[in-house]
Simulated assay, not measured.
Amino acid sequence: MRLLIIGAPGAGKGTQATAIAEHYGIPAVSTGDIFRANINNGTELGRKVESIMDAGELVPDEVTDAIVVDRLGADDAADGFLLDGYPRNLSQVTALDTYLSSEGLALDAVVSLEVDPELLTARLLKRAEIEGRADDNEETIRNRMAVYTSQTAPLIDHYRQVGLLVPVDGVGEIAEVRDRIFAALDARA
């Protein structure tokens, strides 16, 4: 399966992506994880994106597109993948579609985790407290929500129009949300 998971920051994409990837035997590809690993390892890419991420901004499309194409070319993604955090805007959708088309591939579904924005802000503040993440303070969180709404939310309309959107209620216990996702994806198969 070739899947995307979309949702505002804090909607549970990372948590659910891991479960979905394990369930379907595909790698979860998280651009956020790739960026954080580069930051932690002090790579050139890490230095380049650290100040951008700390301000709650998004990494430029060209950089993100290249990283994703490189990752999807890895052997473990040959039979499928789950993208988490990409694409974030319509330009990245075009880049992904162009790459997949060039490889004779297409997406199977796009899971959209739906959660109230105020609940998400509270979740992210709690996560920041627990994990000590510098990129999760209230000002940065609200900025990320605004950026998500302006740039990423249009993807939901796009994927709905092309018949790939699978909306899932993202509120509840992790297992409940996971089971809703599996049921929705299995119903499409």
Rank of each mutant, 00 (worst) to 15 (best):
V29R: 01
V63N: 07
P87N: 05
L83R: 02
L3T: 02
V63D: 09
A66R: 13
I67Y: 01
L100K: 07
D75C: 07
L3D: 04
D79R: 13
D97S: 13
G25K: 14
L72F: 03
T94K: 13
E103Y: 08
I5C: 03
K48A: 15
I20K: 01
K13L: 12
R47E: 15
Q16I: 05
V59G: 02
G32H: 03
S51N: 15
N38C: 08
E44N: 10
A8P: 08
E103N: 09
V93Q: 14
Y24P: 00
D79Q: 14
R71E: 01
G42W: 09
G42V: 10
D84W: 01
L83A: 09
Y99F: 15
L45Y: 09
A11P: 05
H23I: 08
A66T: 11
P27C: 12
N40S: 13
T64D: 10
V63P: 01
G7T: 05
I67N: 04
P27A: 13
V59D: 02
S101V: 09
L4P: 08
D79L: 11
D75H: 12
G104R: 04
A8C: 09
A95N: 07
L83G: 04
E103M: 14
D61L: 10
T15H: 03
S101T: 15
F81G: 00
Y24W: 14
T94G: 11
A37P: 03
I39G: 01
G10C: 02
A19K: 15
S91L: 10
K48D: 13
K13N: 13
P27M: 11
V63C: 07
G46H: 06
P60W: 11
T94E: 15
I67K: 03
E103S: 10
I34T: 03
P60T: 12
A95W: 02
L82F: 01
G56Q: 07
V59P: 01
V59S: 00
A78V: 10
L82I: 14
R88C: 09
G42T: 11
N89H: 07
Y86G: 02
E57T: 07
L3P: 04
T94D: 14
V29Y: 00
G10H: 06
G14T: 04
A19F: 14
P87G: 06
L82R: 01
E57F: 07
D33M: 00
D84Y: 00
E44Q: 13
N41R: 13
L45W: 06
S101N: 13
E50G: 06
R88M: 06
G42I: 12
G32F: 01
T31A: 00
Y99A: 05
N38I: 03
S30V: 00
A37Q: 09
M53N: 06
P27I: 05
V49F: 04
S91M: 10
G7Y: 05
G80F: 04
Y24S: 02
R36L: 04
S51W: 12
D84V: 01
Q16R: 12
L90D: 06
D33P: 05
F35G: 00
